[in-house]
Every structure is written in C-alpha cells, then in structure tokens.
Design a protein around this nucleic acid. Structure first.
Lengths: 136, 136
DNA sequence: ATTCTTGCAAATCATTTGCACTTTA
DNA sequence: TAAAGTGCAAATGATTTGCAAGAAT
C-alpha cells in the first residue's frame, strides 16, 4: 500500500488524511510490537520534528474510534495499540512485559449472547513467556 | 463465610488480616459490579472513617498480586476489580459503561500454547448492551 | 521490640484540553 | 476561505510514594 492509497484508505473511513495521520497509520501498519504512544512519538519525532505528543494521542484515539486499530490496556499504565491483521489474541508476560500475538479465531460465546451487540472481542492471556521461563 | 473465616482465608494466602483488608475483601466478595477504587472507598469510608484511599490502592494491589481478585482496565481511566466466582468473561457497553459478566469456560487455545505458562485468561467483549440498544 | 500496615500529603505520570496558528479540501 | 487539524503549555486525574504514627505478633 503506497502513501497515495493510504490517503484514500483513511478518507474511505471518514478521516481527513493529514500528513501526520498518514505517517502514524503507516507506522502502525508496519509495527507488530503493540507500541505505546511514547514509542510511536519517539520513533516518528526525529523524522517529523514538528510532531507533538498531543497529535499522536488525538490521532490514535481517532483511529480507535473509527475501528482501524485497537487499544490494549494490559501492561503497566500506558495504553498499547494493536493493528489487527487477522483475528488474534494476546499473551502478556508478567516478567518482561512483552505482548505476543496468539493466532486464534473468534470464540463461540460471541454468538451466544442474546441481545448484546458485540463489536469487538479481546482475549488476553497472562503468565510467563518461554524466554523468561528459561532465563530463570 | 464469617469475618472469622475471612481472616483465615486471607492468612492462608499469605496476607496479614488487618481490619481494613478484611473489610475490603468482604466488600469485593459481596459486590458484583466490578467496582473502581473510588467506588470501594466511597462505600467503605462512611463505615470506616479513618480509611484512606492509599490503603484501598495498596490492598487491592496486594489482592491482585496474591491472585484473589483480578484487575480490569477496560472502561475509562479507572481500573475496575473483579472477584472471580467462577470462570467468566466480560461484556463492556460502549454507551453506558456497564461491565456485565458472561458465563464461559476457559477457551481451548489456553492449552495450545507451547512453552507459555498461562496463569490468567481475560476475555472481554465490547459493544452495545440490550438496555442501551433499546433506549435508542 | 520489631516488623508490617495505615493515613496523609505531596509527587508522578499518562492523558486531555484551551487556544493561537497552520493545513486541508 | 471555511472547517478541521496541529502544537504547545498548562490542567487534570488516577495512582504511587515518603514518612510519621499506629497496630500486630
């Protein structure tokens, strides 16, 4: 997807395609580490010196609202953001804090809830990852 | 479970049974509304005038650490706390913010993750609840 | 008596907001 | 050019912390 079509993609979702928004969205697409606002800012600020933290917050909130990305609040105080390639769950390591993707379809209960309109499903496993388990 | 045995229960989990801790734990047991720290404090403070907010924070963090309750960060900025009677998922309404319990066993994938030690599983559905859907 | 807990107030830190300026369509 | 987005700095609000006083064993 080129910048040209990223523009289009955002507009199709009712989002004005400012330079900052395109860059932040492109960063989310290319990053699978569930970055925090601070991480996104730290990566992009050197390349876009005028970029402000507030804009990163505004933009991510907008993307979440429009359903383009998902907000995860599973590790520490900072929200982490997830670009949903395909349905997947998350595993959070209690020791190192890493958030892993876990391939998985949407669970059955999703369909069984009479009267509830389910728009989003989040599944989070917490525990110890193989790397931390072995380190001892 | 009487106060007597609540004492015991806490001690069995390596927690000194102070008056505040017993009262807060008892409150969690009796409450199914996934209360926030502020709600717990507001309920108990009239009955325990000396109670401080910091103690509520300390105590809940301790209970989470010992695995007696679960912290949910799904609605707004405030953490919500869950007393896990039996395995269940949650449904969060985007409009009214209510957190509903959804009866449900532990999903299969839990068993399928080689090398990951899963200590906790959280499933959260988000959407519109029947009450908000009908209100229009 | 020593160790752990509490309560208060101040500190911290992520996130939001108000407003003047700039950009986009 | 009108409407919306950006950047900065200040404000907000949840949570944590330092420390002196109190309770438990």
């Amino acid at each position: 997807m080129s910048f040209q079509t990223l523009d289009q993609f955002l507009r199709e979702h009712g989002i004005k395609a400012s330079y900052q928004r395109v860059r932040i969205f492109d960063f989310m697409r290319q990053t699978r580490t569930h970055p925090s606002v601070a991480q996104i800012y730290n990566e992009l600020h050197p390349q876009i010196p005028s970029l402000s933290l507030a804009t990163v917050y505004n933009t991510l909130n907008l993307f979440v609202e429009k359903g383009l990305i998902t907000e995860l609040k599973v590790e520490g105080d900072e929200a982490r953001y997830d670009y949903p390639y395909e349905p997947h769950a998350h595993f959070v390591c209690h020791k190192c804090g890493t958030i892993y993707d876990v391939p998985m379809g949407t669970p059955q209960a999703c369909m069984d809830m009479d009267g509830f309109i389910v728009k989003e499903t989040q599944i989070v496993f917490k525990g110890i990852c193989p790397s931390c388990r072995d380190k001892k």
